[in-house]
Design a protein around this nucleic acid. Sequence first.
RNA 1: GCCCUGGUAGCUCAGCGGAUAGAGCAGGAGCCUUCUAAGCUCUUGGCCGCAGGUUCGAGUCCUGCCCAGGGCACCA
Length: 556
Amino acid sequence: MTPAVLADLVRSTAETVLTEHGLDTAVLPATVTVERPRNPEHGDYATNVALQVAKKAGVPPRDLAGWLAEALAADVTITSAEIAGPGFINLRIAADAQGEIVRQVLDKGAGYGKGDALTGTRMNLEFVSANPTGPLHLGHSRWAACGDALGRVLTAAGAEVTREYYINDAGVQIDKFAASLIAAAKGEPAPEDGYAGAYVGDIAAEILRREPSALSLPDDERTQTFRDLGVALMLEEIKRSLSEFGTEFDVWSSEKSMYASGRVEASVEELKQHGHLYEADGAWWLKSSDLGDDKDRVVIKSDGVPAYIAADIAYLLDKLERGFDPCIYMLGSDHHGYIGRLKAIASAFDHDPAVVEVLIGQLVNLLRGGVPVKMSKRAGTMITLEDLVEAVGVDAARYALVRSSHTSTLDIDIELWTKRTNDNPVFYVQYAHARLSSLLRNASELGLTVPDAATTAAADLGLLTHEREGDLIRTIGELGRVISTAAELREPHRVARYLEDLASAYHKFYDSCRVLPQGDEQATGLTTARLALCAAARQVLANGLALLGVSAPERM
RNA sequence: GCCCUGGUAGCUCAGCGGAUAGAGCAGGAGCCUUCUAAGCUCUUGGCCGCAGGUUCGAGUCCUGCCCAGGGCACCA
């Protein structure tokens, strides 16, 4: 009896009950809420459906709850159904019915937890998109971890996801970068407004290694060489950092290519023809204030050069033409002003502005023992992704970044995330997986059969009646809902929190339920059932960690 | 001035309108001849920033205010 099956049972029972009392079944929601109560005394599951529909149905909630409870209690899978409070129904599930959750995990394996809530949606997920003018810093790291995890979660919920990185390889910042590289190559200090940091010197040196005569080229060619090689090398390094961080992209889009391919010109022309652009003070403006934005935006500057937004327009149109809905942008809080203009652009192309979905991430601070870490060897003042990974490792870095809601600022304390105790959530969760792996290895060494998809039928899961067993099974049963909720709300941190609950449920089970026989004891049916539960718990931990891109170690 | 995001235990943070608001850490007291003690158990600790409103029911939704961070370019 999975939560979804239980919800269906409650709904269909409610339908029957309403009909029997001559009431309209249309008042029932499409899916009724069945949740695990915080207080275990309130049962295994509880439903508030009577409270929800009583008013619409025109009956007192407790009366409706009473009828429903009586009908539910008649089902063989339900051992008790009691009315509580204003009209909740608290349910207890028969152990063998509940054991079906374990069977389902073993049956589906790595696929357990996947759903179809988002099946049929083609999503574009753009994240990181850091300028190729410097290494990835902490803010980018947050998006690398959250974006990657969100991509995995959305995919698990059935969406078709394209992960995309937009390379700002055109414009003024790139020119400044090139100028900084040239200065560094000459051994001169960085120009004002240029890029400092040790990496500039490294890249300049690499350019000179590849093109020893680069400095003596004519000005135009020299700038061109340093710009192109510099961007290529920086991008290479960014890609390597991301790859080592376990974050992969499907599509790398280039701002420069938006111009080269004529997309910028074409999309601007299209806006003109639709009457969304007007000329004033020698510039072309997008009439975005008519489309929900705060103000109008200059698209073509009075000197005839397209403004930055021109490429954004071309790029969004490109995404829309590729058929994505929604187009998700993960941006730092300093870019929240983008929301209005991006939605305005979508509107200008006759799309629902809701096609543009912007997630705004707050800052990340790095601390050591409560003291802010300030300097980075590499980037001068910024702390880089590689600094973070060097300090705590990939698993802890990813987990720390994805564990909290991206809407709140985040403090990551190096001291905490390198601890090997349960202060450190990633170790707590990984330890549960390692502990389970060890237990299952020991079972095999004892010659015991650990139930799998093929042999699960032999296990009598109705023997799992201990409170801690039930709690662990029901927690395992939540993965599907956690994934669909995390996907729909775009909140991958829910997966991490869930894993901590699951690890806790497992550790508590482990503490009070002996699995393997000791001494001269013989394995019993309970041994087999508990091994099945352990195999399922391990699978679910592994599935959840995979969604976060964090490893599930066999040993620690 | 306008916009965005926070404000929940000493600290770091959960909490998709539900019951007596949670976890970890920190403080206090316990549990290893036995499957990994990187674990578990008990315990101390709350005007959920403030004030109204909607609701059978508000930490959660709405309005106003206070505080903190960020943003409001013919920059990218």
